[in-house]
Design a binder for these strands. Structure first.
Lengths: 334, 334
DNA sequence: CTGTTAGCGCCTTCAC
DNA sequence: GTGAAGGCGCTAACAG
């Protein structure tokens, strides 16, 4: 019966011997505004339902210039931190009746750029991105298009762009102080993607704490994990640190923390008053871990909500001033 | 200098005193086909780059009927299983030059339906969905639109639709046998979203094993976790089971398994030869857990690749027969 | 109250 | 080799 490919406004118009315009007006709830008679309105509504009309959002978008779609670029959505972030952003977006297109950058500026360009071409109404290293140019390009954009997790210094991030420096500073309080003195630092602003800040907080407390530190205690080869790279780092006889490892992210603990577990290393691991982030892994990991918990939901509310206000043109938000993180001591 | 909102084909045409047609032909790599002179081709290419031309994919899509976008509906992308699935699907999609729009159903048929309708309206070229309970009608609607769709993780019996799933029944059957081998006899079963085909199958495999081995089982050993109230619900279930003196808990999914272990940990329950927990799925949590959890590992990457390759072949019209794939899962015994 | 016109940006015949 | 015309489906402005 209704086997046509798709039902369009004109199809309905034809059946009803009306113009597409009227149908459009009614279906967009503007019957009142254009003073369409109630009878016609009813008929249109009925007929549209009957024929299984579904608006073609593509055409709508082309016409109106709004797609109700936002683009999301994160490092890797299978990372629990980003996964929760994505989840939260999608939930918020849905509230405002927006859809989310997402892409993983894998921390590659190249992939980042590609996805950004694609999103622009697809005319997204806004973007939420975690910029990678060397993505400044891409971000500038997005800014040039005037498409609203909000950075999340990392920032790019000196760029007039909205962002929401955690106070990374402060968080590591506090956690580092805590482990110093506990008497640990030979503290190794293990990080990843170290060029990113958030990781730079974390390291700064860590070093500041050490310096203030006169805890010695040198390059041999610093290790950057190879992103591409995470598992293997962590293993090598941990083995090295164990040989050096360090007594604590500060992990700069959940990925590092999780991998470090997996390696320690393989080696049957017992954690104790003489050896500990602390980490940024607080994924479920840590809650179950075979020994307690003190950590820094990011209020992911708060971040997601904030990011979306900023983006929406930009899209709606409600706000024009640049919002750069830094939220404190929470220490979880075990 | 180039401060125009967006550069269109006609803009380039105007500058070059050519028609938009030629520009389009060149920029789509059809210069050869239409025998455009090399000189013009070069000029067009150059000018387009110069002016910062970006094709409007919306317009392209409206014209061609292809959006190069696929819709993805999963239960909850913050669940590590779905997160890895999404990650993999996005990676595959990118290979084929497709973008992914995603939505979480939260296992609600309502949200599922809403997202499905939206994706249809947005003219996605295909969809990958994990159907919720009572979503059969929505899936039928999608099928009616002729938009290619592949189910993943769960299936809907009797529907002529492509899918990729794990052999759930077989996997739980095997794992259950293993724990019976180990001497456990009072085995509780803890599940969630129990109306879903995959969970039904898991339970069936579990029961079959028990029956074959003459291990007694009754309703008191079965517990369905409340999805909305997962944490609290698991706690109650576990407490109840502990009071009953069961000696093993079979968890039907990673969410359940993780929560169960968190609760056991709170209670300082030691796992041993006399008490164990096994689970479907193998998230990172289990690798770090304070005691070893034997589990069933799904080949998520394989599933994702398979799903995408089926979807792509449907989109391209390369294949018309229905592909229903069931992949074996792998037991990880600890 | 309703209809006509025009055009969003692009691609594809078909004609020159 | 190149260009003009038409139309994808929709909406906003402007006439009646």
């Amino acid at each position: 019966m209704k086997d046509r490919k798709t039902v369009t406004l004109s199809d309905i118009a034809e059946v009803l011997h009306l113009s597409p315009t009227v149908i459009s007006m009614v279906l967009n709830g503007k019957a009142r505004k254009y003073r369409v008679s109630e009878e016609v309105e009813r008929k249109v509504m009925h007929c549209a339902r009957e024929m299984g009309y579904r608006p073609n959002r593509l055409a709508q978008s082309l016409r109106t210039g709004k797609t109700r779609t936002i683009g999301l670029i994160l490092g890797d959505i299978s990372n629990p931190f980003f996964a929760r972030m994505a989840r939260c952003i999608e939930r918020e977006a849905a509230k405002y009746d927006y859809q989310v297109m997402f892409a993983n950058s894998d921390e590659s500026a190249d992939k980042f750029e590609r996805s950004a360009q694609l999103f622009i071409s697809k005319q997204v109404d806004g973007m939420i991105v975690a910029p990678t290293e060397n993505s400044e140019k891409s971000v500038r390009n997005i800014l040039d298009t005037k498409i609203p954009i909000v950075l999340v997790d990392r920032i790019i210094d000196g760029l007039p762009v909205d962002y929401v991030q955690i106070d990374n420096e402060d968080a590591t500073y506090r956690l580092t102080n805590k482990i110093i309080d506990k008497g640990f003195r030979k503290i190794a630092y293990m990080t990843i993607s170290h060029g990113l602003s958030n990781f730079v800040a974390r390291y700064a907080g860590f070093k500041r704490a050490l310096q203030e407390r006169n805890v010695p530190f040198d390059d041999s205690l610093f290790y950057e994990v190879d992103f591409e080869n995470c598992q293997k790279s962590v293993r090598e780092g941990v083995y090295m640190f164990l040989r050096m006889g360090i007594d604590a490892i500060f992990c700069a992210s959940n990925r590092v923390g999780t991998q470090v603990m997996i390696v320690l577990r393989e080696r049957n290393v017992e954690l104790s008053d003489h050896f500990t691991v602390v980490s940024f982030d607080n994924p479920d892994e840590f809650k179950l871990a075979y020994f307690p990991v003190s950590c820094i918990e990011q209020p992911i939901e708060t971040i997601g909500e904030k990011v979306m509310s900023i983006l929406i206000s930009k899209i709606n043109g409600t706000s024009d001033k640049i919002e750069q938000v830094t939220i404190p993180a929470r220490l979880i001591m075990k």
